[in-house]
Design a protein around this nucleic acid. Structure first.
Length: 347
DNA sequence: GAATCGTGGCC
DNA sequence: TGGCCAAGATT
């Protein structure tokens, strides 16, 4: 990697911001490029947390539902735990929802209902790591911050042909992003961050990048040495183990289904779920009640680091469980259990 | 530093 | 179909 000189950096900045002025995406949490008005910190923060490891199309309806139901951070802070977790169901990475509520409560309790307006202040809140703190500081408060997500890493790796594989190459990519980040007097920090991410998302895509439409193609070392999709380099991934278990769908005479609240930590933590045998080694709980259990098929589900095969058992009866209408359960359970419920009631 | 933690879309 | 990927944080 050759250290970029200042003239080249300035040319890249101008080219990107010119492109963004024309091609910026219209998103419900975003101000138009060049707008004098700053975006609402609550909406910026909420969108950034939802977008962690999540696509814009998947997160968008959840964002709309949340801001409709809880228009301010104070309203969210006052919401019951189960309402927030249920509204998050299907979005995944449920620690985000627990931290979301904890963060809203911290802002309400410790900051008078107003988000801290510095990167360090934001970084201290639950669920805000390096990326999200920088993004909110830049977008909501106009602070210069080095905003580095997967998009930015990919753009940096290609612009400057960084050959160190991820995740080891992260510090190097961040240093390049820092060098490229403009001063607030030159370009708006929020526009800058979103321009870089839009470029990564729409043009400098992981597969089949659209170099013909890229405003930085003439500055891109990967474009010159090609093919650009060879960057960023990545370490080989470990194969996913396969795990198995039983899941019990108990229905009462009123047509409700029996649920359990999962422990706050660990997989699907804090969410409602169906009773299961467990699926980790040495884990083997029995059914919630002795009943006439019948097999109702199999559900396969792929988590981040393992594949799960659940044998579905169904019965009618009573037990000491949390009872919910089937429609509500289907709307507020994690996807793996929603799939089980659909299978059990179809069989 | 490595493991853990969801889900849906795409090719 | 199966692997890859997405605006990462936490422990």
């Amino acid at each position: 990697m050759s250290p970029p000189d200042s003239d080249r950096l300035a040319a890249i900045r101008s080219a990107l911001m010119d492109w963004y002025g024309v091609h910026a995406r219209d998103l419900p949490w975003r101000m138009a490029p060049g707008s004098a008005e700053r975006a609402d910190p609550y909406r910026v923060w909420l969108s950034e947390v939802m977008l962690q490891q999540t696509t814009v199309p998947h997160a968008t309806p959840y964002f709309q539902a949340f801001v409709t139901r809880w228009p301010t951070v104070g309203a969210l802070a006052a919401a019951p735990d189960e309402a927030v977790m249920g509204a998050w169901a299907g979005l995944g990475y449920y620690a985000r929802a627990r931290n979301l509520l904890a963060c809203a409560q911290a802002v309400a309790r410790d900051h008078g209902g107003v988000f801290p307006d510095t990167e360090d202040g934001l970084r201290a809140l639950p669920g805000l790591g390096a990326y999200t703190a920088a993004a909110v500081a830049a977008i909501a408060f106009g602070r210069r911050a080095v905003v580095v997500d997967g998009n930015v890493e990919r753009v940096m790796a290609r612009l400057f042909t960084v050959d160190t594989p991820l995740p080891k190459g992260r510090p190097e990519l961040r240093a390049l992003a820092d060098a490229l980040t403009p001063e607030p007097e030159t370009f708006d920090p929020g526009d800058w961050a979103q321009a870089l991410m839009d470029l990564g998302s729409r043009i400098c895509r992981p597969r089949s990048p659209l170099c013909g439409q890229c405003p930085l193609a003439g500055d891109c070392q990967a474009r010159a040495s090609g093919p650009p999709e060879a960057w960023p380099k990545k370490l080989a991934k470990v194969p996913k183990p396969r795990r198995e278990g039983l899941v019990w769908v108990l229905v009462d005479k009123a047509g409700r289904v029996g649920l359990v609240k999962r422990p706050d930590k660990g997989l699907l933590g804090g969410m409602l779920g169906l009773p299961t045998s467990g699926w980790d080694a040495g884990e083997a709980s029995g059914p919630p009640v002795v009943a006439d259990w019948v097999e109702a098929g199999t559900v396969r589900h792929v988590f981040t680091h393992f594949e799960l095969e659940l044998e579905v058992m169904r019965a009618e009866g009573q037990a000491d469980l949390i009872w919910r209408e089937v429609a509500e359960a289907e709307a507020t359970l994690p996807t793996v259990f929603r799939k089980v419920l659909v299978r059990a009631l179809a069989a």
